[in-house]
Design a protein around this nucleic acid. Structure first.
Lengths: 201, 201
DNA sequence: GTCTATAAAGGGATAGAC
DNA sequence: GTCTATCCCTTTATAGAC
C-alpha cells in the first residue's frame, strides 16, 4: 500500500490475511499482531481500533477487484472478447486469492449500508455502455432479446460461484486441490461458450 | 423439530434465526435467549454449549436443503424436467430462506472437516444416475459431450449465486426488494433455457 | 515508535434458589 | 424447568516506561 511505513505495511499484510480468512467477527487482534511480528499496542497506535483496521482492509480488497470489472464495463471491444477477458481475468485473480469473494459477500450481507456509504460506484461501473452494445446486437438480429442484468449476473455467477462452493464441490465430486484447479481452468473456455450460446438466435 | 418440548422449540427457532444471520462467531447467546423469551442459563440447560447448539442448527439446516437435491439426483425423469424442477425448487426454497446459502458456505469454509465428519453424503447424492442419463443422451447424439461436473456446477451457480450476491446486484442495478424478487422469478425460466441450450448439438 | 502491564468490557458457562 | 447472580476467561483498548 502506498504511503505506508514498513511497520504499517507489515500490519496491513497480516491483517489482510487474517480478516479474509476469519472474517471481522472471527479475527483476533492478537493473531494479527503475532503474524506481523509486533504487539497489540502497536496495532492501536497505527490504526486506532479493530473496526478502523478492518475498514482499511475491506475497502482495499474491493479496490483490488476493480480493474477486471472496469475493463469489462468501460473498454471498447466486441461482446465475445469482453466476456472472455472478464471470465479469464477473474478466474486468474481469484485463483490467487480464493477466499476473497466469500469474505466480501459475507461481510457485505451483515452490513449492507457499509457499502453504499463508502463506494464510489459510478467511477467503477456504468451499465450504459454494455447495455448499448447488447441493444445494438439485438437490433441487428445477431443475438436474441436479453435483459442485460441477467446477462451480467449469469456471467458472474458461473465465474465466481465455483470458488465459493469449493468445499462442497470437492466433497461430492471427490476432487483433490490439483484436480479442482484443473476443473476451474476448464471453465475459462466453457463459460464464454455458455454465455454466447445463451444469446444466439 | 420433532421430539422437542415447547421451550426447546422456542430456543431452536431463535437460534436458527440468529446463527443464520450472524454466523457462529457473530452470534451471541444473550441475543438468542432474548429472542426466545428466556434467559441464557436455560440455553445451557437444554443445549449444554454454544458449540452444541450451533451443530444442531447447522445440520438441521443442511437437512432442509436435501429434498430438492435428492429429487434431482435420484428421481426418474427426463433431463429438462429434472433441471426445471431443481431450479424452481431451489429458487422457491431460498426465496423463503435467503440467507441460508451464505451461512452454510461460510461456516463450511472455516471448518471443512465439520462437513466430512458428519455428512452421510451417499444417502444424499449419487452422481451415477445423472452421469448415466447424460451419457445416454451423448451417445444417442441428442446433446454434446459435457463433463457432468460442469453441468451440475453451472446449474447450481446460476441458481444460487444471485441470492449470495444480492446486496451487490441490488446496489449496482438499483433494484428495490420487490424488483429483485421479480428478477429472481424470471430466472426460473431463464436458467433451464441456458442450461439446455449449452448442451444442444 | 515500540514495548510491558493493566484496565475495562464482553460473553460463555455454572451455582444455587425457587 | 426456570430464574438471578456470579464466575472467569477472552479480547479490545489504553497508560506509561523506554
Amino acid at each position: 500500500m502506498v504511503n505506508f511505513t514498513p511497520t504499517e505495511e507489515k500490519i496491513f499484510e497480516a491483517a489482510t490475511a487474517v480478516f479474509i480468512e476469519k472474517g471481522l467477527d472471527g479475527a483476533r487482534m492478537q493473531e494479527i499482531a503475532d503474524k506481523a511480528g509486533i504487539n497489540k499496542a502497536l496495532l492501536h497506535y497505527y490504526f486506532r481500533s479493530k473496526e478502523k483496521l478492518f475498514k482499511t482492509i475491506f475497502f482495499n480488497t474491493l479496490t483490488n477487484l476493480k480493474p477486471v470489472i472496469t475493463q469489462f464495463f468501460m473498454e471498447e471491444d466486441n461482446l465475445e472478447n469482453k466476456v472472455t477477458k472478464f471470465v479469464g481475468g477473474y478466474i486468474d485473480f481469484i485463483s490467487r486469492n480464493p477466499h476473497i469473494p466469500l469474505f466480501i459477500l459475507n461481510e457485505l450481507r451483515k452490513k449492507p449500508d457499509f457499502f453504499l456509504e463508502n463506494m464510489d460506484s459510478h467511477k467503477m461501473i456504468n451499465f450504459s455502455k454494455i447495455e448499448q452494445i447488447l441493444n445494438k446486437e439485438i437490433n441487428e438480429g445477431r443475438i436474441i432479446e436479453i435483459d442485460y442484468r441477467h446477462f451480467i449476473v449469469n456471467m458472474i455467477s458461473l465465474t465466481i460461484f465455483p470458488f465459493i462452493g469449493k468445499p462442497i464441490i470437492q466433497f461430492f465430486s471427490k476432487m483433490n486441490d490439483e484436480k479442482f484447479q484443473q476443473f476451474i481452468l476448464e471453465r475459462k473456455k466453457i463459460i464464454p461458450e455458455i454465455i454466447m450460446n445463451s444469446i444466439r438466435p
